[in-house]
Amino acid sequence: MSDPAAPVLDDLRSESEELDRLVAELDGTGWSLATPAAGWTVAHQIAHLTWTDTASLLAVTDETAFADLAARALAAPATFVDEGADAGAVLPPDQLLIRWREGRERLQAALRSLPAGARFPWYGPPMSAPSMATARLMETWAHGQDVADALGVRREPTARLRHVAWIGVRARDYAYLVHGEQPPAAPFRVELTGLGGELWAYGPEDAGQRVTGPALDFCLLATQRAHRADLAVRAEGADADRWLDIAQAFAGPAGPGRPAKSGRPAKGA
């Protein structure tokens, strides 16, 4: 029987390797470049991925240790993530790079060794191996975007964005709840234009509210890497419009998002 986690784990490895190529040859100045995330350098971005891979490995292999980590996160939700990034960012770049590479491979091995259907705790709902791999790919892509922006590099979108779009759609209700709002009872229709012009569709065709736009733009929105005013994602319906204001594909507190660059109004169906 084929492993349902294998395809997304393969894509996670490819996504990580693409980001690795961006940072592997940077000098100290490059690692110190500021990224669009306030207060975070390129080193902070890689340190955060390293820290989250470590947390993910604990969730898979040591639930008691992860429960302690999660309790510390709940005790300091506004600072916990930054503290983890700060601790790794002070390392010499070559040491940080080694830690990231080794940590992500340990996580790969742990996830591939799990029996089908196994679940383990996380900061949001419990995870399976495929869902954890998808979440790690989403985060690697998002933080990779910050690194690319800092370096002035334009990354070519890949079919791996399907994973990011999927988790963005799946996290709809979580986005409402983390803002203290009740999610809409009815599903939305989400229609995204894929990289080759194909349709990526989620939700019933006859849904009363819908979201449409380029897949890349939706992924940037759901990972809060761009403001909706700068993206070609559109909503039909008041609830769908609200979702575009608060969408987040990641677990944890609602992020501050990014300021609008275009000067266009933030809302509008």
Score class of each variant (00 low, 15 high):
Thr50Lys: 07
Thr52Ser: 08
Thr52His: 06
Asp53Gly: 10
Asp53Ala: 11
Ala55Lys: 01
Ala55Met: 10
Ser56Glu: 00
Ser56Asn: 11
Leu57Gln: 05
Leu58Tyr: 01
Ala59Gly: 10
Val60Gln: 14
Thr61Pro: 14
Thr61Asp: 09
Asp62Tyr: 02
Asp62Glu: 04
Glu63Thr: 03
Thr64Ser: 15
Phe66Ser: 02
Phe66Leu: 12
Ala67Asp: 08
Ala67Phe: 05
Ala67Tyr: 11
Ala70Leu: 14
Ala71His: 09
Ala71Glu: 08
Ala73Ser: 03
Leu74Trp: 02
Ala76Lys: 01
Pro77Cys: 10
Pro77Trp: 15
Ala78Trp: 04
Ala78Ser: 01
Phe80His: 05
Val81Ile: 14
Val81Phe: 07
Glu83Lys: 04
Glu83Gln: 12
Gly84Pro: 09
Gly84Tyr: 11
Asp86Val: 09
Gly88Trp: 00
Pro92Ile: 07
Pro92Arg: 05
Pro92His: 07
Pro93Phe: 14
Asp94Lys: 04
Asp94His: 14
Gln95Lys: 11
Leu96Asp: 12
Leu96Asn: 05
Leu97Gln: 11
Leu97Cys: 02
Ile98Lys: 07
Arg99Pro: 11
Arg101Trp: 13
Gly103Asp: 11
Glu105Ser: 05
Glu105Ile: 10
Arg106Gln: 15
Gln108Val: 03
Gln108Met: 09
Ala110Thr: 03
Arg112Trp: 01
Ala116Trp: 00
Ala116Val: 10
Ala116Leu: 03
Gly117Ala: 06
Gly117Phe: 00
Gly117Ser: 12
Gly117Asp: 10
Ala118Gly: 00
Arg119Glu: 15
Arg119Ile: 12
Phe120Gln: 11
Pro121Ser: 02
Trp122Cys: 06
Pro125Met: 14
Pro126Gln: 03
Met127Leu: 10
Met127Lys: 05
Met127Gln: 07
Ala129Ile: 00
Ala129Val: 00
Ser131Trp: 06
Ser131Ile: 01
Met132Lys: 09
Thr134Gln: 10
Thr134Leu: 13
Arg136Thr: 06
Arg136Leu: 09
Arg136Lys: 08
Arg136Pro: 13
Leu137Val: 06
Glu139His: 03
Thr140Asn: 12
Trp141Asp: 00
His143Thr: 00
Gln145Arg: 14
Gln145Val: 11
Gln145Ser: 08
Asp146Phe: 00
Asp146Leu: 03
Val147Trp: 01
Ala150Asn: 04
Ala150Cys: 08
Leu151Met: 12
Gly152Thr: 02
Gly152Met: 06
Gly152Glu: 07
Arg154Leu: 13
Arg154His: 04
Glu156Arg: 10
Glu156Lys: 08
Pro157Glu: 01
Thr158Arg: 14
Ala159Met: 10
Arg160Thr: 04
Arg160Met: 13
Arg162Cys: 07
His163Gly: 12
His163Pro: 13
Ile167Glu: 02
Gly168Ala: 09
Gly168Arg: 02
Val169Ser: 00
Val169Ala: 08
Ala171Thr: 03
Asp173Lys: 12
Tyr174Trp: 06
Tyr174His: 03
Tyr174Met: 13
Ala175Thr: 01
Ala175Lys: 11
Tyr176Leu: 09
Leu177Tyr: 04
His179Glu: 15
Gly180Ile: 06
Gly180Leu: 13
Gly180Tyr: 07
Glu181Gly: 06
Glu181Trp: 11
Glu181Leu: 15
Pro184Lys: 11
Pro184Trp: 11
Ala185Phe: 07
Arg189Asp: 08
Val190Phe: 15
